[in-house]
């Protein structure tokens, strides 16, 4: 059973060392910073904070090597990503309409509940159905790509996988930093890191926390363009269940807007929607969650409410 600790953003108040100490991770730590892209190798600040040996898995750089050595695969990967983007665009068209309808219904909450309530619930159910449909299509597209190209068996990738397996094996735990969530997910998938990670305690923050979920939800309530409706993006590695992490929630979400908070919580009611701001932490023991004092979750009532799990 994989132990996972999810942390809030680490730029100003890093708490990774404390989490490592709590798990008694004394050997070297494997570090995944692929989400930082071209800055992947810049571990100085992290190393200074940790004060213990780290081994950078260099997934971003390894991915670039694969693309250089295997142009056929690179082109296939590019086409695959383009297909995924098209699916996301189509989903977004439908999502905007479905979410607009829910917001319009919510604005009529002065009407008697027996009149408006079922309409809102059905409107949200439509959004959920759309999310599921989109995720099915994404999974199906990913599956076809993997069946056709069997990336993990390709010589350009298999060698890296063996190296990575050996490195992870000798590490006491794995740290996964945030950054670009799609790049991070792609690199984890390319080298099929999931079975290796499942053997080790993991400490992840920001996008690193998001990729470990069963589904990855992108969110921003105040974008300069568009309406800011959260989007289901991809299936994550699924190393924990029943939780949607929301890094930088206090910056990215209108947490004092009851309508938006309520819609979010109701739309993803299969999971607990948990803000991960600086100082936040939540632990997964392989079966269920353990919260800290101050852990909050989005409530269907439209507020942030305490979440307590022993």
């Amino acid at each position: 059973m994989t132990k996972v600790i999810l942390l809030g953003p680490q730029r100003y108040q890093p708490s990774i060392a404390q989490a490592c100490a709590g798990l008694n991770l004394e050997g070297p730590l494997a570090v995944i910073t692929a989400g930082w892209q071209e800055r992947e190798a810049e571990l100085e600040e992290l190393d200074a904070h940790l004060g213990q040996e780290t081994i950078n898995l260099n997934l971003h750089q390894r991915g670039e090597e694969v693309f250089r050595q295997d142009p056929g695969y690179k082109e296939a990967h590019r086409r695959h990503q383009a297909s995924l983007r098209r699916l996301q665009e189509l989903y977004r068209i439908r999502l905007n309409n479905a979410q607009d309808a829910v917001q319009l219904l919510m604005a009529r909450n002065h009407m008697p509940h027996e009149i408006i309530g079922p309409e809102i619930e059905d409107g949200i159910q439509s959004v959920r159905s759309l999310d599921e449909h989109h995720l099915r299509r994404i999974r199906s597209t990913n599956r076809k790509f993997e069946e056709e190209w069997t990336p993990h068996d390709r010589p350009s990738i298999a060698g890296h996988r063996m190296e990575l397996s050996e490195v992870v094996e000798k590490c006491s735990g794995v740290l996964i930093a945030g950054g670009h969530v799609a790049v991070l997910l792609n690199r984890l998938r390319m080298f099929k890191l999931e079975p290796m990670l499942a053997q080790k305690p993991i400490i992840a923050w920001s996008a690193g926390a998001m990729v470990l979920a069963k589904r990855i939800v992108l969110f921003h309530d105040n974008p300069p363009q568009g309406k800011g409706f959260a989007e289901v993006f991809e299936a994550g590695l699924g190393l924990y269940s029943n939780l949607i992490p929301l890094p930088h929630a206090s910056k990215r979400l209108q947490l004092n807007n009851p309508t938006r908070v309520s819609i979010f919580a109701r739309r993803f009611s299969h999971s607990v929607c948990v803000p991960l701001d600086p100082d936040d932490r939540i632990d997964w023991d392989g079966n269920w969650w353990h919260t800290q004092a101050g852990t909050r979750k989005l409530s269907v009532g439209g507020e942030l409410e305490p979440w307590e799990e022993a």
Binding site: G179, H180, M210, L218, H220, Q225
Partner: peptide, 18 residues
């Protein structure tokens, strides 16, 4: 400028969580 630049050169707002 915000509206113009973010429309012409959109940043990775939806994708990056550091």
């Amino acid at each position: 400028l915000r509206e113009g630049l973010s429309w012409l050169f959109p940043g990775p707002l939806w994708m990056v969580y550091e």
